[in-house]
């Protein structure tokens, strides 16, 4: 027997089974096969696992799955709609803001949380906001440019 949790993932009601020590990250990737959310460090340092939970940006590796009852969880899989990329996804492509891509889902969710809260951030605000998302490939400039391209 496992613990049954009811939550909403990307706007759809969702039920999953977990143990008390399982993280939200493990459940997303292994139970729900939502492997867009990446595992890097597993300790809150890299941001590869960033998701939006109840409107707040969190590291899925630092949330227990048993905490997610009734929660509203948004992952990178929910960004596009009707076969159309989200404007941030398109901007990342247009600006070549990714190389290996492992940081990208986390950075997309971090950028989405930023624009949801502050629709018109300046460059400094963007750079501070994404400080919890590490990228070993791009040097960040193209990522920052992509996000700035989406500022209304």
């Amino acid at each position: 027997m496992t613990i049954s949790i009811h939550a909403s993932v990307n706007g759809e009601p969702c039920q999953f089974q977990c143990g008390t020590t399982d993280t939200l990250l493990k459940v997303l990737r292994e139970n729900l096969q939502l492997t867009g959310t990446k595992q890097g460090c597993g300790t809150g340092d890299c941001g590869a696992c960033s998701v939006i939970m109840n409107g707040e940006l969190v590291c899925a590796c630092l949330v227990l799955a048993v905490e997610c009852g009734q929660a509203d969880i948004r992952t990178v899989e929910g960004l596009s709609s009707a076969g159309q990329l989200h404007s941030l996804q398109q901007a990342f492509l247009d600006n070549a803001a990714l190389q290996c891509g492992i940081c990208t889902p986390g950075l997309l969710m971090a950028s989405k949380a930023l624009l949801d809260k502050h629709p018109q951030p300046d460059e400094t605000q963007i750079r501070y906001w994404i400080a919890g998302n590490l990228c070993r490939c791009t040097g960040y400039d193209k990522i920052v440019r992509a996000i700035m391209g989406c500022v209304s």
């Binding site: 809150g44 941001g47 960033s50 939970m53 707040e56 940006l57 969190v58 590291c59 630092l62 949330v63 971090a110 949380a113 930023l114 906001w129 400080a131 919890g132 998302n133």
Partner: peptide, 9 residues
Amino acid sequence: IGSVQIQSR
């Protein structure tokens, strides 16, 4: 303390 992600928690 930490990043935006850490600040949420």
